[in-house]
Design a protein around this nucleic acid. Structure first.
Lengths: 320, 320
DNA sequence: CTGAAAGCGCTAACAC
DNA sequence: GTGTTAGCGCTTTCAG
């Protein structure tokens, strides 16, 4: 058997309640008793049972971060930032994965309503949930903050990026660098990608820049020499290049993507990467979550918080 | 207040114990009662309190995966595989981060001894722990499996890769592809890197291949035209190339690295990547963990399990 | 300053 | 089939 408070109390010839107080440094307990209790606790290798404590206090000092997977930088970065920041605040941070599986989302969200955590940050599933588990959780008063995208009908705080502005910035940098024509390829699969696509289009129109939305059948006008490929991600740009091998010979190519470009710009000339400020997003999400945890009266309000882009990074070829 | 068993019992005019049985589909309870209880549980939005259950049963149906961060493929891959596999077995998987911080490792490992999980998988910190918290945990009989590297004096199962063989394979592929001379650069910082370094050296000696260990002062013999750069990772190879810019002109360069190469081989000619089988490692770790959980008598035995390399991947330049 | 006692919500003997 | 009872390990009034 693991040693319990009872064991310590017995060993010290005090009551369990005294032992309990002593271990939490209650000043009501005489210094001598406190020392003695702590001493024997150490000797017996005492570890308080968290289930029992949680049952009594109703809190866990634990926060869950629920994400779909660990392969996007947003997810891993959020995990690391939140974990670091919350540990300063004496919370344990636990990351749970739902694998884009709706029933798993439901199960994990359900756990939250079973007292496993004091609050949670959720990066919602790509596919709009058909169920209302998250909505119910929030309505029950559980402190939840959404990261990256909102969920319809869920009345809570969402922390996201200035997606439209970021995309516009990518277009602008390509044009300033010399691109005369932009090919915009953004799979419009969710709220975030939608905002980005619109951001790019609006900027082009506002600034009168020749452009085309990639529908798989792109024609680049005569006379164009420099083309910018605007997209969500590295792999989408590379797909465009593979689908149109002639572009590499015919044009000077630049890319504009979100978040990351792996390795050299090669075979493109150069490019720009819109770096979201993941740590700032996570930090803000944590701050808001803590507020919700500490102030039950502030729950139940829908709010969007847009964190500014961290930087537009220029990527050029180091080796010629 | 959240609805409890008591509320349901009252509503159904039965005892809490009956309600408890009914909800767990105990066949001893009359079908009619079972239905009624379940029905009102649903209506009242009943969610069993897991702390209370855990306090009673001593189990949590939860497994922790403790890792340093989320930026290596091993860590994220382990997280995803373990989470998927364990959810089939009705376990919740929670990932906790220790940020290479010794006190955080200690805190998290400490949590395990407080009943937060039924078992855990740990990827140990880079720096050898000066403390004995893990050792104590294992000695207390807690089911723990180590992933990637062992910890001295900890009597439990470790699942790792055939590191020596992988490194030898990289050397072999470079040589077969034409490299006449190998520069081996492996920072010898832990058990894993040590094994790899030795693996490379032994293979070169056994096969009589000219090579040098990079000590920052490498001389490549006269007459050599094709050089292989063997290292742990992409960034280390790129560092070598940056430190010796002349190599790009003087030699045909190949790389041999573990796990991943980002983007094109450029500016090198081509290279080889030793892909560890992270999913297989995680899967095996999970299997062993489940065994330990289910069979308390099998705990306390030190064992190394080496999972074969998944493949040696050839990376060549797509664009010329 | 410390002890006695109640109770958090649930499960599991043991009765009837 | 169902109720009674005890108890998991801890915190927290309330007495004294």
């Amino acid at each position: 058997m693991r040693t319990t408070l009872k064991d310590i109390a017995k060993a010290c010839e005090v009551d369990v309640s005294t032992a309990s107080r002593a271990l939490r440094d209650d000043p009501l307990v005489k210094q001598a008793t406190r020392d003695k209790v702590k001493q024997t606790a150490k000797e017996l290798g005492y570890r308080p049972n968290l289930a029992a404590r949680s049952l009594q206090t109703g809190t866990t000092h634990t926060v869950w971060l629920i994400v779909s997977s660990l392969d996007s930088k947003l997810e891993t970065s959020a995990g690391e930032s939140a974990s670091k920041q919350l540990s300063e605040l004496q919370y344990d941070t636990l990351v749970a994965l739902h694998h884009q599986d709706q029933s798993t989302v439901k199960r994990l969200v359900g756990r939250l309503s079973q007292g496993v955590a004091d609050g949670a940050i959720l990066i919602p599933s790509q596919h709009t949930p058909g169920d209302t588990s998250v909505q119910q959780l929030v309505e029950s008063g559980f402190p939840l903050v959404l990261l990256d995208r909102a969920i319809p009908d869920v009345q809570t705080i969402t922390v996201t990026t200035q997606n439209a502005k970021g995309m516009a910035s990518l277009c602008e940098h390509c044009v300033n660098a010399g691109s005369e024509f932009l090919v915009i390829h953004v799979d419009d699969i969710n709220e975030v990608t939608h905002t980005r696509l619109q951001g790019a289009i609006k900027w082009c129109k506002a600034n009168n820049i020749a452009h085309v939305i990639d529908d798989g059948n792109v024609q680049i006008p005569e006379g164009i020499k420099q083309v910018g490929l605007i997209s969500n991600a590295h792999f989408e740009v590379m797909k465009m290049v593979r689908d149109h091998p002639s572009w590499l010979k015919d044009y000077t190519l630049r890319f504009g993507v979100f978040d990351g470009w792996l390795g050299e710009p090669y075979p493109l000339k150069e490019g720009f990467v819109c770096k979201q400020d993941f740590p700032a997003m996570a930090q803000r999400a944590v701050e808001e979550l803590i507020k919700l945890i500490d102030h039950p009266d502030q729950r139940g309000q829908r709010k969007m918080i847009r964190i500014p882009i961290r930087e537009i990074q220029h990527r050029s070829n180091h080796f010629g």
